[in-house]
Amino acid sequence: MPGRTQLYGDGEGPEDPAPSPPVHYAEQALLGALLLNPARLNTLGPLEAVQFHNPAHAAVFAAMASLPAPEAAVHAKEPVWLTAVHDHARRDARVLTASYLHALVQACPAPEHAPAYARIVRADHARRTLRAQAERLVQAATGSTMPDPAATAMTRADALAGFLDNLASLFPPHPGSLPRTPLPPPPEHDSGAEAAYEERALLACAVARPETLTAMRWLQADDFATPLHGQLFRCVAQLAHRGDAVDPVTVLWEAQHHGLVPSLPPREILDLVSTPAGAAEHWGERVLQRSLLHQARTAGLRIRAYTDDPATSVHQLVTGSRRALADLTAVRARWHHATHPGPAPRAAPTSTAARAGPRSPRTKPASAVRTGR
C-alpha cells in the first residue's frame, strides 16, 4: 500500500519515521473505492472531510463531495473526474500528486467494503474528538485563573456527556462493552497553603457552631484535600449528629477513638479546632468546590486514558466514559445542593461580608463563587 511519501511523488519529501496508524489505511481504501466508483459516496452514511485523520485525505474527500459525480460510462474511459478531484484537493493539500490518487485505487482491497471503511474513519474521529473533550475538561478543572472554575468545568462535562450520547446513537453496542484499559492513578489533591487554610478554618468554625453541620450534609470527609482534616471533620460531624457536646476537648477525645492522635499530637488538634474565623458554610463551599474540580480532573484523565488505548472500541469508550462521569455527577449533585438552596434558605448573617468571613489568599466570597463575579 502506498506510504505517506508518495504524496510528494517520486520519493521527494521527507520520510515519516512513525508508522501510520490503522485508520490511515482505512482512509486510503475508502478513497480508492470512491475514486473507482464515485456513486459509492451515497452508501457511506454521515461522513465529513473533517473526520479524516490525514489532512491530504480530507482534502481529497472534500473535493469528491463538492464536485458533481461523473457519468459512469465516461468515468470508466477517461480520468476527467480524477483530474478534477486532484486539482480541487490541491487547494488545501499542495503536496498531493496525481500519482498518489492512482496509488489510492491500488490501496483498496475491496471497493464494495467502502461503508465499512467509512465506519472506521468515523470511529477513529470519535476517539480523537472524545480525547479532545476530555483534555478540555482536565484543563478546566485545573485552571485557577478562571472567574468561576466550577461552572466552567461543569459546562465542559455537559458537552462531553452530550457527545457521548451522540456516539451511543451512532455506534451500536456489542458484547464485552466494558473497557479493559488499566485506570491511571488519581491525580493529587490541591493541598497547597490555600486549601490547608480553608480546611482548618472550616474545622474551627464547625467546632464553634456545630449546629451549622445539620445544613451542611452536602459536605463529606472525602472532599478534603488533606485526609487528616477530613477525618477530623468526620469526628466533629459525628459528635454534632449524635447531639453530644462539641468543643475542642470533646473533638480531641473523639479523634483519639478514630486513631488520629498518634498521627497528630493532641496540642496540635486543639490548636487546629480552636480559632474560628468566618462562617463554616463559606469554607465548606470552598472545600466542596475543590473536591468537585478534583473529581472533574480525575474523570477527564480516566477518559483520556481510554482514548489512548487503541484496543478500546467506540462503545467501550462510551461505557467507560459514562462511568467516569458518574462519579463526578455524584459530587456535582452535592455542589448544586450547597450553592442552590431550596425554598427554605439557610440561616445566614445579614451581610455578604459577614457570611463569607475573612478571605484566604486568592479566595472569593461564597456568593461570588456561585455567580461568577
Rank of each mutant, 00 (worst) to 15 (best):
A33H: 12
L35S: 04
L35D: 00
L36Y: 01
N37L: 04
N37G: 13
N37S: 09
N37F: 03
A39Q: 06
A39W: 02
A39E: 13
R40E: 11
R40W: 00
R40G: 08
R40S: 11
L41D: 02
N42P: 02
N42A: 15
T43V: 14
T43G: 06
L44M: 06
L44Q: 14
P46C: 09
L47I: 15
E48Y: 12
A49H: 11
V50Y: 12
Q51M: 10
Q51W: 10
F52D: 00
F52K: 02
F52P: 04
F52Q: 06
F52Y: 03
H53S: 08
H53I: 01
N54D: 15
P55Y: 11
A56K: 05
A56L: 12
H57C: 01
H57W: 02
A59I: 10
V60Y: 00
F61E: 02
F61L: 05
A65T: 07
A65G: 01
S66G: 12
S66D: 14
S66A: 14
S66P: 00
L67P: 00
L67S: 06
L67C: 01
L67Y: 10
P68L: 11
A69I: 15
A69F: 06
A69L: 10
A69M: 15
P70E: 11
P70T: 12
P70Q: 12
